[in-house]
């Protein structure tokens, strides 16, 4: 159980990461704002409480693994990895620039701490499953975490992987769905409905939890519960708000793939820095 002080620290870290996301997106002039902001608490809870890793040795054998299946949320991953010490924070300003290590979508070839390359939706869960099987073959205690988008649930490969992970009784795998309810063309429910999502996962044989994806306490509790699930994989459906933390970005479908302007950045920082 995390102490109130630890939770408070996570909240502070989350705010810092939000600020860095907005700054890097404004500098690059393009990138995915809404879906990065919705996943901040999830990544913060993973990297600053739940997961074991060594930032100075990303390939460390004993590490837990993380796959960002919703690769367009690269800014939140980069800001979190920088905060965790995988690379210097000043590299964040090079996002999406020619020759930089921070590609528009995560690349394991370019960026320390990124374990597999993602960006084409639907593929991360399969890779996480493969990692989980490798870890199990080696009888290591490591766990594998994978963050998916809710729009991503429309990809058929997700359900191929969901079926297989349950079939192989993989219980060192924990998927998190960033359930912000919006995708590029509009509300997920309008574009291509996925509900009842929890029931789909349950029917596929996963241990399902539903939480508030912006509450670090609930997120950490869910990870702890997931660790106790035996003989099947765990999925956490995290209800989130797209654009979370900046009032004029929240629940705005227009900010899926648009970076904040200088004026928007100024107003956003005012809100976040209080």
């Amino acid at each position: 159980m995390a102490t109130p002080a630890q939770i408070e620290n996570l909240r502070k870290t989350a705010t810092g990461i939000r600020i860095n996301i907005l700054k890097m997106l404004n500098t690059s002039g393009s990138g995915h704002t809404g879906g990065s902001l919705s996943a901040v608490e999830i990544l913060t809870s993973l990297f600053f409480s739940e997961m074991k890793y060594r930032a100075n040795d990303p390939g460390w054998e004993g590490r837990d693994h993380f796959v960002l299946s919703k690769g367009h949320a690269a800014p939140v991953l980069y800001a979190t990895l920088a905060q965790a010490g995988f690379f210097a924070a000043d590299e964040l300003s090079s996002l999406r620039r020619l020759g930089c290590s921070l590609q528009g979508h995560p690349s394991c070839v370019c960026t320390p701490g990124v374990e597999v390359s993602t960006g084409s939706l639907g593929q991360g869960l399969s890779m996480a499953l493969g990692l989980a099987l490798a870890v199990r073959l080696d009888q290591k205690p490591s766990r594998v975490y994978v963050l998916c988008g809710d729009g991503e649930m429309q990809e058929g490969q997700i359900w191929e992987a969901a079926m297989a992970a349950a079939h192989f009784r993989v219980d060192n795998l924990c998927a998190i769905v960033d359930n912000n309810g919006l995708q590029i063309d509009g509300p997920v429910a309008k574009v291509m409905g996925i509900e009842p999502l929890w029931k789909k996962w349950e029917d596929f044989g996963w241990g399902v939890q539903r939480i508030d994806g912006h509450n670090p306490e609930e997120i950490l509790d869910a990870f702890a519960t997931a660790r106790q699930i035996r003989g099947r994989p765990a999925v956490i459906i995290a209800k989130t708000v797209k654009g979370k933390g900046v009032s004029f970005f929240e629940n705005k479908v227009e900010y899926h793939g648009v970076a904040p302007s200088a004026d928007e950045l100024k107003r956003a920082l005012k809100e976040l820095e209080g």
Partner: peptide, 9 residues
């Protein structure tokens, strides 16, 4: 995809 993950592991 699973093969990719196994290779990463």
């Amino acid at each position: 995809g699973t093969a990719a993950g196994l290779a990463k592991g």
